[in-house]
Design a protein around this nucleic acid. Structure first.
Lengths: 354, 354
DNA sequence: ACGCATTGGTTAAACGATTAATCCAATCCG
DNA sequence: CGGATTGGATTAATCGTTTAACCAATGCGT
């Protein structure tokens, strides 16, 4: 037995008004030919009956579900809120719903997640790939948000330029020795960021890179990064490739009595939720998530409309990369080698700075 | 013209095997009466044709979309990744998809978001309400995840008990004066947490509360909290109601030369992504998101099955509240009033601690 | 007044899966 | 041996929308 019918539907409206369902449909969609008066009457009546169209029926008939899938394969990525919010907003504005799927880590789980979404009838996918994962196109258009150097990437923040901005900023502040702190050298995003930073260094500046995951593999998770030692070696700036690493660096430095930014500068990437509220607030480089999401969604939808049936296309957009924006806060300041001398530690309370 | 038919469907399989669609349907769903051999042949053939059932058609026929909605009204809530992950996992395990909707702040937007989801045919909703918002039931079962004292709450972490755990922990460490740091006194969650903390204080302990949003309204966003001053006043422990506030407190203290936990302890709530990796790592109290999600989803689904048609019921679960777990890390330690004397500041490098 | 477009509407056929209702053996049993 | 049961499959109706095709007026130019 089919479930008890509940809500009003086209035919209910139609009989109740003494017209045909087709007319009601036409009136509500504004497509066929219906006199303006009748259309108006129908719309009113539909509204007061609380009519809400059945997406299922519509999807069945038109073959378009009005839903796209969002695949987030990085476990609990702290960028997730902003991204999901931006994608959801862009999609909603375009009249689409967003189904999420999170394949925790695991590549096979990623494939499964994609399949699940496809089975649910998504018209397209937005995928933020797990690092170094190549997306083997599913059976529907796929937009990839990663970084410009990833093959098949649709749109992404210009991580390279963001890196250059950081380098420029640190150069202007007079820093000569910079330690780049990354998580994993296999991340395309992080590599682009490092590349950008290096490309922005002046001839008299030098940098080296610390990969945290590698260090943790030797010394255990959550081990100290030994940054105070680096300060003693003459590093005056720590450029983390993510705010998470920056935060880790910052707290470790502070804990070891290094005042930021007086004695060392710290910068990050992504402008995560905590970045503006810590002390000192974090100088970082932010993605324009709204624009990225807009570009991704709009080009995805364009591709969907173009490709009649469900082919597995990788979507490409006009705008390949979206500029990142440097946000200068309190954690970066002029390099002042004099202060590195441990005897000059100035630790009087600074509570009252605004 | 209906879009070009692409994938294989039941009737395609049926004709290609010389049987009826009904038989194919029965074989694949295991419902009707089909001989085992034929069923096996059908399954094989369906698989090699790459058959994937049309959710739209199924939804239309059965009235069940196989999708639930997740509404996250708090802007970019840092808890979001864990929550979404847990909900998605629980729902997926039950064969359901998850549609997200984020109403940024705005209450009317929240209603709109709910409507959008309902129009998309979700069978039920999981809502994490914006603070102090009462959920006026939509036209489908709704599970609310907030806190036990919220009217209509379905399931949530036992924030009160979490607070008591924190108080116990600090009591054992010998702290006498505790400053509770919250964001907004209108949050049910935060109030329960404060209540828990207060209830766990020993007779010889005292606490007061600092509401950050209120302070920021006077002194501007991102203003200093003046915690160093509090230390001088004799406070030895700062119990933040969220890791975000704890982080803010911790960095401010460190910046002002207060060594944590030697001179003051800091604790948080929620075990956010950054909490284990900062220095010192943060003592906090974690929600059991997996269990919360399981309970929410399973009782939601139970209600869905029970309520034949789409009524707006608030789901209730057997387990009202899920225990929180205290995670003791480095940011909390024994109270030692002696060290509060600024002349005894010990600031030799501590880089080598593991 | 006749053909021809235009306007405003109706009919009916899909879309693909589910499922109640049949139907046709073959088997069972007293 | 005849009526009842059962296993195995088919028929056909249905979910609610969309949309191509069709039809009945009316208006209009010649």
């Amino acid at each position: 037995m089919p479930p008890a019918r509940s809500g009003p539907n086209l035919s209910r409206i139609a009989t109740s008004l003494g017209v045909s369902v087709a007319t009601v449909s036409n009136a509500l969609s504004g497509k066929g030919r219906v006199s303006e008066q009748l259309a108006e009457r129908i719309r009113e009546h539909a509204a007061e009956m609380g009519y809400v169209p059945s997406q299922a029926a519509r999807a069945l008939r038109t073959g378009r579900s009005g839903v796209i899938g969002l695949v987030l394969p990085d476990i609990a990525n702290p960028l997730f809120p902003k991204l999901a919010q931006a994608i959801e907003f862009a999609a909603t504005s375009a009249g689409y719903g967003v189904l999420i799927a999170d394949s925790r880590g695991n590549i096979t789980a990623q494939t499964e997640a994609i399949n699940r979404l496809v089975e649910r009838g998504v018209e397209g996918l937005v995928i933020v790939p797990r690092r170094a994962t190549r997306i083997s196109a599913a059976s529907c258009p796929v937009a990839v948000i990663d970084t410009a150097s990833t093959p098949g990437n649709t749109v992404a923040a210009d991580h390279w330029q963001g890196g250059r901005d950081i380098a420029d900023h640190l150069a202007e502040l007079g820093h000569k020795r910079i330690l780049v702190i990354g998580n994993n050298p296999e991340s395309n995003v992080q590599n682009d960021r490092v590349g950008g930073i290096r490309s922005g260094l002046r001839p008299d500046m030098q940098s080296s890179t610390l990969w945290v995951e590698r260090l943790e593999r030797e010394n255990g998770m959550g081990c100290t990064l030994g940054l105070a030692e680096k300060v003693r070696e003459g590093y005056t700036a720590f450029a983390a490739l993510s705010d998470l690493q920056a935060l880790r660096a910052l707290t470790e430095l502070q804990r070891d009595g290094i005042v930021v930014p007086d004695m060392a500068s710290v910068t990050g990437f992504d402008d995560l939720i905590f970045s503006p509220v810590i002390t000192p607030s974090l100088t970082t480089v932010a993605m324009d998530m709204a624009t990225i999401a807009d570009v991704a969604i709009s080009s995805l939808l364009k591709t969907i409309q173009a490709s009649g049936s469900r082919e597995g296309v990788l979507v490409s957009a006009d705008t390949d990369r979206v500029p990142m924006q440097l946000i200068v806060r309190q954690s970066s300041g002029p390099a002042d080698p004099a202060r590195i001398d441990p005897t000059k530690l100035d630790l009087t309370s600074q509570t009252e700075n605004s």
